[in-house]
């Protein structure tokens, strides 16, 4: 089971299965013709058939090795840090506001290429510029903490 195709097919099958099941709960007909469940039921039904074909193809001929296409070593760390930084940003932003969460996220991201103190410095500058452009110039109400930043 080192074939990435199989996992992707199963993931998409799960999503399509949920949509198909949900589409069964929506009216197929309306008083004037096809209803809101008509096209979703056909679409999810057809994609399920195609995904089964894809799954069979993946098992029989289309082998994409996880170890070959997924990152290893430094590449894997880069991806994990990137994912982690974005998740941390989204979790803490409602509590600490945009500026603090942005500095934390950017420090994590810049730390992959710079020393930690340089990473913090660049992050503060970038955050300030982004906050100024979006918050002040473009008037986007970025989330702030109780101190207004």
């Amino acid at each position: 089971m080192r074939n990435l195709n199989i996992y992707i097919a199963l993931l998409l099958l799960l999503i399509s299965g949920i949509i198909f099941w949900q589409s069964l709960l929506i009216p197929y007909y309306s008083p004037y013709g096809p209803g809101p469940g008509f096209l979703p039921r056909w679409t999810s039904g057809i994609i399920i058939i195609l995904l089964i074909v894809y799954l069979i193809q993946s098992i029989r001929i289309d082998f994409i090795s996880i170890s070959e296409v997924m990152p290893k070593g430094e590449g894997l760390v880069n991806i994990l840090v990137t994912l982690g930084a974005i998740i941390v940003f989204m979790i803490i932003i409602p509590y600490v506001g945009f500026n603090v969460s942005s500095v934390i996220m950017l420090t994590l991201l810049f730390s992959r290429g710079f020393k930690w103190y340089k990473a913090i410095g660049i992050s503060v500058v970038v955050t300030f510029i982004v906050f100024f452009i979006f918050g002040s110039l473009l008037g986007v109400p970025l989330p702030v903490n109780e101190y207004g930043w």
């Binding site: 399509s16 949509i19 309306s30 809101p36 679409t43 195609l50 894809y54």
Partner: peptide, 26 residues
């Protein structure tokens, strides 16, 4: 097959939300 799956996947996520003709949440 992959092209078709991609197109139908895009179509499926387009159905999310209120149905324009009946107002039913999907």
């Amino acid at each position: 097959i992959k092209g078709l799956i991609a197109a139908l996947f895009g179509l499926m996520i387009a159905f999310i939300g209120i149905d324009q003709s009946t107002g039913i949440m999907r």
